Simulated assay, not measured.
Amino acid sequence: MTANKLLFSTIEVTRQAFYKTSLAFAIVNLKPIVPGHVLVVPTRPVPRLADLNGPELSALMSAVQRVGKVIERVYGADALTIACQDGKAAGQSVPHVHFHLLPRKLHGDRFSENNDEIYPALEHSEANLSDVLAVSKSTKDLSKEGRFIEGVEPIKMDADEERKPRTMEEMVNEAEWLKGFFTETSQQENVDSTA
């Protein structure tokens, strides 16, 4: 990982990142809905999927695919729920395109009996985020320049009592653990491509 700061909208997420390319990155989630719930985000902060150029969209989808394979394996999942809330009317609360990747199990995750309940849970998980992010005009101006944002208040999440916000230390520990799987995957891909 480079020393460049990564922004999810105006929120610096460098320490929560576990996968990065020049055009996309993946971060662990502050309040995961299921174990292994992560986000895949384009490097350039744009609000909607249609705002991405061709190379960015391609890189984002490649990152979703690569991160998804690893997350599914690492968390012992049978499948993935992959979701993108593209616009405020769709439930997007952070104005930066992102995909949720949620490892799923046929039996044993909290949504296995009623699979469709995961979608309201996703919407609820972000519903109030935009209302509580402290984003001043000067912060918005700085974010356009892609610089680190100082003075942004900590994120306060919705009142979902089942999912307490994790500490920075918990998120960093998970991100560091996940980074190791991408190093292993890269080494295996290199071996496979030379065989």
Rank of each mutant, 00 (worst) to 15 (best):
P165L: 07
L106F: 12
N53G: 05
L178S: 01
E126N: 07
M1K: 07
V94N: 01
G68E: 09
N115A: 11
S125D: 12
A195H: 15
A159F: 14
T81G: 14
M1I: 08
A3E: 15
E162I: 04
S22L: 12
R166W: 05
P45N: 09
P47T: 07
D116G: 03
T43R: 10
N173W: 00
A50N: 12
L102T: 02
A79R: 06
G146Y: 14
P35F: 00
K69M: 11
S143L: 08
K164A: 06
E184R: 12
G108W: 10
I27A: 08
L52R: 02
Y119E: 11
P120W: 13
K137S: 11
R15V: 01
A90G: 03
E123V: 09
D116F: 06
V34Q: 09
T185V: 04
E72I: 05
N173E: 07
K69T: 11
S193R: 15
K20N: 03
M157G: 15
Y119P: 01
N173M: 06
A3F: 10
H100D: 07
L133E: 11
D116T: 03
Y75W: 13
F8H: 14
E176V: 11
D192H: 13
P154W: 10
Q188D: 12
F111K: 02
E162Q: 09
P35I: 04
S9E: 15
K69P: 04
A79G: 06
K5L: 05
S58A: 13
F18E: 02
R48M: 08
P47H: 08
P154K: 06
P45D: 02
K137G: 12
I11G: 00
N115Q: 04
I33S: 06
R66F: 09
V132P: 02
N128L: 12
P165C: 05
V70E: 09
T139Y: 08
S93D: 04
Q65C: 07
G146K: 04
S186V: 05
N53M: 08
G87W: 01
L122P: 00
A63F: 07
T10A: 11
P165H: 04
I27E: 00
Y19H: 09
L129E: 11
N115F: 12
K140Q: 08
D86A: 06
D160L: 14
G36L: 04
R147V: 14
S62Q: 12
N53V: 10
I27H: 02
R48K: 13
D158Y: 10
V70H: 03
N114Q: 05
K156N: 12
E12F: 14
F111Y: 09
A175L: 03
P45S: 07
K105N: 08
E113R: 13
E123K: 13
Q188I: 14
S112Y: 05
A63I: 04
G36D: 05
L122M: 14
N29V: 02
V191Q: 14
C84S: 03
L102I: 12
T81R: 12
L39G: 00
V70C: 12
D116K: 03
A127D: 04
V40G: 04
E161S: 12
E170M: 03
I33Y: 04
A50H: 10
A90E: 15
L7A: 11
F8L: 13
E184W: 07
